[in-house]
């Protein structure tokens, strides 16, 4: 197993390298840069030499291969560099936002699983009954409604009925868990609903398939209690695709809540993505894309390892 993990980790190196080079080059193909946005975005008559000096300071006047080598050399030492916009270390800028994004992702995942596992199972067990129909309508609605729209509806409802708006500033959970939850539960709910719909449908379809397997029929023939058949034999096997979907959705939530974070004014990774695009902060964007890639790779590895735990037939060498 350790050898397998080592092998997978080694494979991440060329993957991340490819992502890094690709993102670096793609960002350089887009016209304009951070200095233009910073100095000309407000319409000031900035002397051309000031602009040129700042571009030189940021290394933007150097050939692209030189810029790439310099950035890669920093990366090799674990140094993401500094934000071209704020001049602060990128690790600091991401660090202060990562906690919020991870917490929202975890809360949304917990909510989604709490909703999806029972609903998906019920839907499969009562296939084509009114229970199944209701659950399918609820889950299809979840897929059809964008999270940010649901978020806006939640906020407008809170404002209209309770004259209350969720906090707009983040409080870490260990400082004040009430303030923390009163801010993050709403985006988690908005995102968790869509997320739960994906998982519910996956759970339903795989469970229906598993319930038709020979070993289920055998268990029932042997007189095993129906509850044990479903929980121990059917659900455990049906969980593998569900885990895959859950993992991918979790990784997506780390950097993908672009609009939802704007709606709730969450100071997370998604909002930082949007701000960095608007500011043409290339170094920040490069780091963010790499971070999301690392999350995807790590979550996929975690999911693969979880397969082995859930299914004894799977052995990694």
């Amino acid at each position: 197993m350790l050898r397998y993990i080592g092998h997978r980790l080694l494979l991440t190196i060329p993957t991340l390298l490819g992502v890094a080079v690709l993102v670096f080059c793609m960002l350089r193909l887009i016209p304009g840069d951070v200095v233009d946005v910073m100095f000309m975005g407000q319409g000031s008559n900035v002397p051309p030499d000031v602009i040129a000096a700042e571009k030189a300071r940021l290394g933007l006047d150097k050939p692209i291969p030189v810029q790439l080598v310099k950035w890669m050399a920093g990366l090799a030492q674990g140094d993401f560099g500094v934000s071209m916009w704020t001049g602060r270390p990128i690790s600091y800028e991401i660090g202060i936002r990562l906690e919020l994004s991870i917490e929202v992702a975890l809360m949304a995942t917990c909510l989604a699983l709490l909703i999806a596992l029972p609903l998906g199972t019920l839907s499969a067990l009562y296939k084509n009954t009114w229970i199944d129909q209701v659950i399918r309508i609820v889950s299809i609605a979840g897929l059809a409604v964008p999270s940010f729209w649901l978020g806006m509806i939640i906020i407008l409802s809170l404002l209209s009925f309770f004259h209350w708006n969720p906090p707009i500033m983040f409080t870490p959970i260990w400082e004040d868990w009430r303030a923390n939850l009163s801010q993050l539960i709403w985006p988690a709910l908005a995102v968790g609903y869509r997320y739960s719909s994906v998982v519910t449908r996956m759970m339903r379809s795989t469970l229906i398939e598993v319930l038709q397997e020979d070993y289920i029929r055998t268990a029932r023939a042997k007189g095993v209690f129906e509850r044990l058949v479903v929980i121990r034999h059917a659900m455990r096997n049906a969980m593998l695709p569900v885990i895959t979907v859950t993992g991918l959705e979790f990784a997506f939530l780390i950097g993908g809540l672009v609009v939802t974070e704007q709606v709730f004014n969450l100071n997370g990774i998604g909002k930082l993505f949007v701000d960095s695009v608007a500011r043409a902060d290339n170094t920040m964007l490069q780091a963010l894309v790499l971070l999301v890639s690392v999350f995807y790779i790590a979550v996929n590895l975690g999911v693969d390892l979880l397969y082995a735990v859930l299914d004894p037939r799977i052995r990694y060498r």
């Binding site: 887009i30 016209p31 304009g32 946005v37 975005g41 608007a278 500011r279």
Partner: peptide, 8 residues
């Protein structure tokens, strides 16, 4: 976007 708008 502002970056492209200014560059244009």
């Amino acid at each position: 976007e502002t970056r492209l708008y200014l560059a244009a």
